[in-house]
Simulated assay, not measured.
Amino acid sequence: MIFRTAELFSGPGGGAYAAKTSHFVDDKGEEWGFSHAWANEYDPDTVETYKLNILNNPDAKTVYCEDVRKFNLDDDEKLGNIDALIFGFPCNDYSVVGKHKGLEGTYGPLYTYGVHVLKRYQPKVFVAENVGGLTSANQGEAFIKILKAFQDAGYTITPNFYKFEQYGVPQMRHRIIIVGIRNDLAEQGIKFHVPAPTTPNPEDYKTAGEALTVPPIPADAPNNEVTRHNKKTIEMLKYIPEGGNAWSLSIPEELRLNVKGAKLSNIYKRLTFNKPSYTVTGSGGGGTHMYHWKENRALTNRERARLQTFPDDFVFVGGKESVRKQIGMAIPPEGMRHILMAVLKTFAGIEYDSVTPTERLQPEVLFKVSGSEVANLVKH
């Protein structure tokens, strides 16, 4: 079975690339995979990136560049007949970095558009992604409300806190991913299980050094422009050790940043060669672009894309800052692929390595609230 797949908040195609590369043929000769139905994304550069890489067609008419709040989600002729929905609803208001507005923010309520698609078109399965901070927004009430909305749309849900470094991604990227199976199918015995980590032990994690050097990035790779730093920044970087940041005591007084208040740990922070990188983000200005473990410079966008597990021939469209944002906001394809393969195997009736419910849920991290209400939500 090939799942006709729609996407909201598609980004440059991290989820779509994972879907495009998730497929197999079972022992009966039946093919399983995902095919593109339609996608929605509001940023023009990001839409062009998606069309170029996912559909290999810059003129594709099935990727809609429009604010989801103005997008006609009730157009059955264009949007109907889908089997799967993937959506990484915007995380700005749930991130632990920033004001953490949750449901009261501009982006917090956007998950409701995904719920609308689920209710109207009733795909067989959905995969929703957001930051770990979702669990603590609005004192945990936001997460409960969102899970209830997915259930009320007619789905049996399996939320989990995924640590992508445990799934082959060379990056400490932690995300909430919720898989929902339509209730009538769940009642027939189609039950999703969280796939077991492929690299559960820290000594087996793919490292930043390995990701960026094996194989070496080709000299002519796209999106590989090196940032030109001012002289003071270069001098300061010379004193920051591997894994260190702008607050390293080895930096001479005259080169230190004059910053009052909170001192973010990722400012001018170097990677550590033999560990996964810290989280690639799309926000911030100079000082937050991630820094090479040895060379006195920020990472190139291609290096950042490698940490996000995009292949070197995945071309991001737009200026340097636009590309940086696209990469940081994307879902790492390699991490998502493990989840989508588990979805396919679930429907194909093929067993796969998975974690038990007690191993799956991490209350101290995943749920910042308590009570039977939460237990009921995740009892499946």
Rank of each mutant, 00 (worst) to 15 (best):
V214R: 13
V214M: 11
V214Q: 06
V214D: 08
V214C: 12
V214P: 01
P215E: 04
P215T: 01
P215A: 14
P216R: 00
P216C: 08
P216I: 02
P216Q: 01
I217Y: 00
I217E: 03
I217Q: 09
P218I: 03
P218D: 06
P218V: 04
A219Q: 14
A219S: 15
A219K: 15
A219C: 07
D220E: 14
D220Q: 07
D220T: 06
P222D: 05
P222K: 04
P222W: 02
P222F: 06
N223T: 02
N223G: 05
N223D: 13
N223I: 00
N224H: 09
N224Y: 00
N224D: 09
N224V: 09
E225W: 01
E225A: 14
E225C: 01
E225K: 11
V226Y: 08
V226I: 14
V226K: 12
V226G: 05
V226S: 03
V226T: 13
T227H: 15
R228C: 06
R228T: 14
H229M: 11
H229Q: 04
H229T: 09
H229C: 10
H229S: 09
H229D: 06
N230V: 07
N230C: 14
K231I: 05
K231E: 07
K231M: 07
K232M: 13
K232D: 14
K232G: 02
K232R: 14
T233I: 07
I234D: 02
I234V: 15
I234P: 01
E235Y: 00
E235R: 15
M236W: 01
M236Q: 01
M236F: 08
L237W: 02
L237D: 12
L237V: 12
L237A: 13
K238L: 08
K238R: 10
K238N: 15
Y239I: 05
Y239G: 08
I240M: 06
I240R: 09
P241W: 04
E242D: 14
E242M: 10
G243H: 09
G243N: 01
N245T: 06
N245R: 13
N245G: 04
N245L: 10
A246Q: 08
W247S: 11
W247Y: 08
W247K: 06
W247F: 14
S248N: 01
L249H: 12
L249R: 15
L249V: 08
L249M: 14
L249I: 14
L249W: 07
L249Q: 03
L249A: 09
S250G: 11
S250W: 05
I251C: 02
I251F: 03
P252D: 02
P252Y: 04
E253G: 06
E253M: 13
E254C: 01
E254S: 05
L255R: 02
L255C: 01
L255V: 10
R256D: 04
R256F: 04
R256K: 15
L257C: 10
L257N: 07
N258G: 11
N258Y: 08
V259I: 15
V259F: 04
V259D: 00
V259K: 15
K260Y: 06
K260G: 15
G261R: 04
G261A: 13
G261D: 10
A262Q: 09
A262P: 12
A262S: 13
K263E: 08
K263R: 14
K263I: 07
K263W: 01
L264T: 09
L264K: 05
L264V: 12
